[in-house]
Amino acid sequence: MSTSTAGAPHDGTVRDRQDLEARIRALPKVLLHDHLDGGLRPATVVELAAAVGHELPETDPDALGAWFVRAASSGSLVEYLSTFEHTVAVMQTADALRRVAREAVVDLARDGVVHAELRYAPEQHLRAGMTLDEVVGAVREGIEAGVAEAAAEGRTIRAGALLCAMRHLDRGEEIAALTIAHRDAGVLGFDIAGPEEGFAPSRLAGAFRVLRDASMPVTVHAGEDAGLASVAEAVHVAGACRLGHGARVIDDVHATPDGGWRLGRLAHWIRDRRITLEMCPSSNVQTRAATSVAEHPATPLLRAGFAVTISTDNRLQSGTSLSRELALLVHEAGWTFADVVEATVTAARAAFVHHDERESLVHDVILPAAAGPDAGRHRA
Rank of each mutant, 00 (worst) to 15 (best):
T156Y: 07
D364A: 15
T13H: 10
A89C: 12
V293S: 07
R271I: 00
G172H: 03
R265T: 13
S82P: 01
R110K: 15
A238D: 00
R212V: 06
A22V: 06
V220K: 06
G239S: 05
G172S: 09
Y80G: 04
L169D: 13
T312D: 04
E85K: 14
S321F: 01
H125L: 13
A116W: 04
D356Q: 15
R17L: 14
S318H: 04
V147D: 08
D133G: 07
V136S: 01
A104D: 12
G319I: 05
T93H: 05
D60F: 11
I192T: 06
A116S: 10
G223Y: 01
R119V: 03
R349M: 11
E149D: 14
A6H: 03
R379V: 13
A222E: 01
L108I: 02
L56N: 09
F199D: 06
L204E: 08
T156I: 08
L301E: 13
A89L: 08
A290R: 09
A109Q: 07
L266W: 03
A148P: 09
A347M: 05
E224D: 11
G172E: 03
G206K: 15
P61F: 00
A150I: 08
E21K: 14
A214M: 07
H221E: 05
D34C: 14
C280G: 05
I157D: 12
R99P: 01
R15I: 11
A380V: 10
V106P: 06
E103K: 03
A177H: 05
T276W: 04
R303V: 12
S215R: 14
